[in-house]
Design a protein around this nucleic acid. Sequence first.
DNA 1: ATATATGCAAAGGATTTGCAGCTAC
DNA 2: GTAGCTGCAAATCCTTTGCATATAT
Lengths: 143, 143
Amino acid sequence: MTNNKLLSDFKDALRKEGLKITPQRIAVLEEIIKNKGHRESEDVYMAIKTRKTHVSRATVYRTLDILVQNGFARKLNLGDGRARYEPKIDSPHHDHMICNNCGKIIEFVNHEIEKIQEEIAKHHQFKLQQHIHQLFGICKECQ
Amino acid sequence: MTNNKLLSDFKDALRKEGLKITPQRIAVLEEIIKNKGHRESEDVYMAIKTRKTHVSRATVYRTLDILVQNGFARKLNLGDGRARYEPKIDSPHHDHMICNNCGKIIEFVNHEIEKIQEEIAKHHQFKLQQHIHQLFGICKECQ
DNA sequence: ATATATGCAAAGGATTTGCAGCTAC
DNA sequence: GTAGCTGCAAATCCTTTGCATATAT
C-alpha cells in the first residue's frame, strides 16, 4: 500500500465519520506512517512543528485517537507512563521486547503463542479482543 | 507460609535494609497479603484508614515500593494508568486476563508460553528479566 | 539521641477538557 | 453560514517529593 493510498483511505475514513480533513490531521497521519515506529505523542508533536504545520499537543492527542479508532495506528503501553503509537496498516501483528537499559524495542511474532492464547481464552469462555505481550530485559548490545 | 512467618520475614527484611519497623509499614504488608489480589494504592490506603492505623497516601506508595523491591509484592501495569499490587510470596508466576467490560481479572499460567518466550529471547541474545502478558476481552459473564 | 519515617501539601508528568475563535465544507 | 476544529491554558489523574514534625531504636 502506497502512502498515497493510505492518505486517501484516511480521508475516506474521516469523511465517513463526518470529520473534517484538516492539515493537522494529515500531518499526524504522515508522521505516523513514516514508520519510525513506536512514537511518543511529544515526538510526533515536535516533528510536525519542526516540519511545517502549526499544531498543538491537544490536537496531536486527539488525532492519534482518531487513527487508533479507525485502525490506522496501534497504541502501545510500555509501562513507563507514556503511550507509544505505531502504524497498523501493512504491519502484521507483532509484540515487543524492550531493553531495560537502552530502551531499544525489538518486534517479535510467534504463532504458537498466539494459538495458545486463543486456547486459554476459549477455555475460560473469554472473548479475546486484544492482548499485550512484552518481554523486558537486556539486549545483546547492552550486555 | 503463615502470615506470621511472612510478617517476621518482612521485619527481617526491613532490619537488613536499615529501615524501621513502623505500624504503617506493617499495615500495608498486612493489607497486601490479605490476598484480595490486584489492589490499587488508593484501595490499600482506604482499607488501612478504615481499619485502624493512621496512614497517608505517600506512605502507602513508599511502602508498596519497599514490598516490591524486597520481593513481597508484584506491581502490575494494566494499561489504565493505575498500578496494581499483588502478593508475590507463595503465589506462583502467572499472567492476567482482564475483562474490558467489568474489569474482572482472571489469572492464568502456561508453561508452553513461558518456554517459547525464553526461546525467543535466546534467539535475539536478549537477557530476559521480566515480562508482561495480558489478554483483554469480554468475560463469560459479560457476554 | 538521632537517624529515619511520616504527613501534608505542593509539584510532577502525561493526558484531557472547556471554551472562544478559526476553518473546512 | 455553520458545524466542527484548533489552540490555549486550566484541569485531571496518579504518583512523587520537600520539608517540618514525629517516632523507632
